[in-house]
Design a binder for these strands. Sequence first.
DNA 1: TATTGTTATACTCTATAACTATA
DNA 2: TATAGTTATAGAGTATAACAATA
Lengths: 195, 195
Amino acid sequence: MRRPDDKPALRVQRLAADSDGELEHDLTEEGGPAEEGLPPEVDEDTSTPESRKLHELIIQLGRYRSLRDPLHGICEDNQLTPTQIHALMWLGNDGPTHVGVLAQRIGITKKTITGVVDRLEHMNLVERGRDAEDRRAVVARLTDKGQALFHRISRSVDQGLRRVLDLLEPEDRESLFGLLERVLQRLGRSTAQAV
Amino acid sequence: MRRPDDKPALRVQRLAADSDGELEHDLTEEGGPAEEGLPPEVDEDTSTPESRKLHELIIQLGRYRSLRDPLHGICEDNQLTPTQIHALMWLGNDGPTHVGVLAQRIGITKKTITGVVDRLEHMNLVERGRDAEDRRAVVARLTDKGQALFHRISRSVDQGLRRVLDLLEPEDRESLFGLLERVLQRLGRSTAQAV
DNA sequence: TATTGTTATACTCTATAACTATA
DNA sequence: TATAGTTATAGAGTATAACAATA
């Protein structure tokens, strides 16, 4: 257990990546050799023609719709930040949650979640309480106002997704659902960290 | 042209949404009537069973991988913020760019892009210049150091996408590519704002 | 001792409003 | 007058380090 403090959500980012926390910037400075004439390695952690193609497609999409913040419009409409929206969405979906777990879901550290919950509490969207089982833990839950906002935001997200789906042919929508379900199945088999 | 100042990147978020800048929070406070027994409208801006299903699937995915910042790992590895990564990626992909256009690509305002480019300039990753045609415009471009970093980041993204693709069966990868290509075609036909 | 949160500090992001320079 | 950027200013996000309370 070498990890010094906490950086809980980061490993989640790696999906099925390497074991723990190596790779210290030693990504072969720059240039060519890794590109053409793949060495006889099993290329565990290399890009592939397909990954480059996907990369290309995503960049094309980015010319129509900014990739940085998919929730931008919703944030604007509700005068909330992306982090706040994510916090509300997870609390709405999961119910009362330890703030540490909430941090993990959102992808921030425990140091940061404190301030986020502080501000949501000031807005009367969230309440703090203590866990009776483990008196160290702080549980965050939505207030009635927060719950109502959660429903409204949730519907906005639905509408946004509907506009995305409108860009797809019915067969492509089917493909997408099937594809996502199989990814979830695979993730469920290979890990045990989902709720 | 009612728009007071600038908020350029926001409309891009709306994809094929409504005309311009309406919808002033009048989303029927909360509760029921909009849900069941759809009125005889063409429900232009409503959620659908399919959009709700997609919503559900995305939340499931979020339990395995934080949805808030897909570039988190790359940001960490390179000690850069998401905004900075996006700026470098667009400059690397598009070459020298007006900072206003860059702001649009990233999805931030012109006020914000100034500081972002400032900091990238201090890091010697980006240089500023004037456009000879329109002397008001500032052009940002990568330095050699920035170019090298761009290539490194680009490869990291490829590797990340490769790990995502590894979760898909070959047929699903095919579906995904086809689906994205058709979305891009459709976007290309319905708009003229991509490069 | 280890874990859960919080506090203090510092830097980045972000938008708003007021401004400069060019068109 | 309109447009492209910049300069304050202020609030939010973020990580690091040091700390308090509980386990």
